[in-house]
């Protein structure tokens, strides 16, 4: 939209009397229209958010607040002689946390070091190529990342599927997110601080480790936690690589492993006729939102207490 400067700031017409004629009617009208449009867009954007929260909370809160949700897995469900109505999600909660942690342990160092290379060292063609790769990686659909790891893991090496395979696929999704946010944080560190450190005879690598990284620490932590929250909700690679298990599996490196998204996926087909399945679905959705919320809060708190002032 082009801005007509004449309308916004009418040129004074000589004497002060021209300024005292009140606000230009046309400008006031435009301002009101723009205000209505902006507020309207904001409210429209809020509707789906509120709707989602309401749906998930109203249906998922009660199964989630039950103690069995956190204490029990779904051992025996489906087998004769067992209680088929267990609403436990311990196996999926633990699985989600383990897979996301496994992902973070690998992805965060790679992402942070890539960002350090790009901001502090990268010059010319190599840096541009890597930056481009990160862009491409951030656009890779999660199911493609899952298939890629499947191709290596199963087709090429012939290994058994396990949770760690899905962590590897999620690494591909997490690295670009954390890398980009870390890059932004490193760029925010004023160059004067680097120069101050060089001028004291401190080598470049030590300047980065002791001056640049501490200064941007809170931002890097926040970005990493947002990356964690992002991969915790991913589904496609888990379907392919971790699949699903109704038992609590505490070993990331062996056997199928459940996660909250795959718990939803497993119970979805029975949801219509079975209130217990519906509870599991909405409870898992609610738990995922809670998890993301808690992680965001942790990120904010760490950011708040380690933020560099001044």
């Amino acid at each position: 939209m082009s801005i007509d400067t004449k309308e916004i700031a009418p040129a004074p017409t000589g004497d002060l009397g021209g300024l005292a004629q009140g606000r230009s009617g046309l400008r006031t009208l435009k301002n009101s229209i723009a205000g209505v449009v902006i507020w309207g867009a904001f409210l429209i954007a809020l509707i789906p958010l509120g709707w989602i929260l309401w749906t998930v909370l109203s249906r998922g809160l009660s199964p989630m607040l039950d103690a069995t949700w956190w204490q029990k897995d779904q051992s025996g469900v489906g087998a004769p002689g067992f209680d088929h109505n267990v609403r436990g999600a311990r196996h999926a909660i633990v699985g989600t946390l383990m897979i996301a942690l496994g992902t973070s342990v690998i992805a965060i160092p790679i992402a942070v070091m890539t960002a350090i290379y790009l901001v502090e060292y990268g010059r010319g063609g190599a840096a541009r190529a890597i930056s481009f790769m990160v862009d491409i990686l951030s656009g890779v659909p999660s199911i493609v990342a899952g298939l890629f790891i499947y191709a290596i893991w199963v087709t090429f090496f012939g290994w058994q599927l396990n949770g760690f395979g899905s962590s590897l696929a999620l690494v591909l999704l997490m690295v670009p997110v954390v890398c980009r946010s870390t890059e932004e944080m490193l760029k925010l560190v004023p160059n004067e601080l680097r120069e101050a450190s060089y001028a004291l005879g401190v080598p470049k690598w030590k300047t980065i480790v002791k001056v640049v990284l501490p200064t941007s620490f809170s931002g890097i932590v926040t970005g990493s936690l947002l990356g964690f929250a992002r991969v915790a909700g991913e589904t496609a690679p888990l379907l392919i690589l971790a699949q699903y298990s109704q038992f609590l599996n505490q070993n990331l490196f062996s056997g199928n492993i459940a996660a909250l998204p795959t718990l939803i996926n497993t119970n979805l087909p029975n949801m219509a006729g079975d209130p217990v399945s519906a509870d599991r679905v909405w409870g898992a959705a609610c738990t995922l939102i809670l998890l993301v919320l808690v992680i965001n809060l942790i990120g904010r708190l760490i950011g708040h207490f380690t933020k560099v002032k001044g």
């Binding site: 601080l193 120069e195 001028a199 004291l200 005879g201 001056v211 200064t215 560099v308 001044g310």
Partner: peptide, 19 residues
Amino acid sequence: VAVRRTVGMVFQRPNPFPT
């Protein structure tokens, strides 16, 4: 790096390390 230990520098804008 050794040169900069021998020849120090003070900059235009004060730049203490904020951390």
